[in-house]
């Protein structure tokens, strides 16, 4: 219990941020027409590609003689970039078609 409260105290701002982000995520999504479910999932999919930022940091942090970490970082960056670029591009392609026929 002691540990829990001290953890809570030390990370209070973080926990607030977490809680509000969760509520925000729910709030933003809850009123979506079914038409947009697929593009929305695809767009959200691209956004979690932000994990790429972490992969870049891993590669920066890896020591030059630590080949395993370099390889891990390299592959992680490739995966992350694929997620980001592919995710946004595919979403854009879907939504482009919505635009066209709306004119």
């Amino acid at each position: 219990m002691e540990v829990f409260f001290s953890f809570l105290h030390e990370n209070l701002l973080l926990i607030y941020l977490l809680a509000f982000s969760i509520l925000l995520g729910i709030e933003v999504i809850s009123k979506v027409p079914a038409v947009l479910h697929t593009p929305l999932m695809s767009g959200a999919n691209a956004i979690h590609g932000v994990v790429l930022v972490g992969a870049i940091i891993v590669l920066f942090n890896a020591r030059a003689d630590d080949y395993l970490s370099l390889v891990l970082g390299f592959v992680a960056v490739v995966f992350g970039t694929l997620n980001v670029v592919g995710g946004f591009a595919v979403t854009d392609r879907m939504l482009e078609m919505f635009k066209k026929k709306k004119k």
């Binding site: 982000s21 509520l23 995520g25 729910i26 999504i29 956004i47």
Partner: peptide, 15 residues
């Protein structure tokens, strides 16, 4: 990363 991830986690669950 935190904000982006949580947003997707929450919205993904709702979806």
């Amino acid at each position: 990363m935190l904000v982006g991830g949580i947003l997707v986690g929450a919205s993904g669950s709702i979806l």
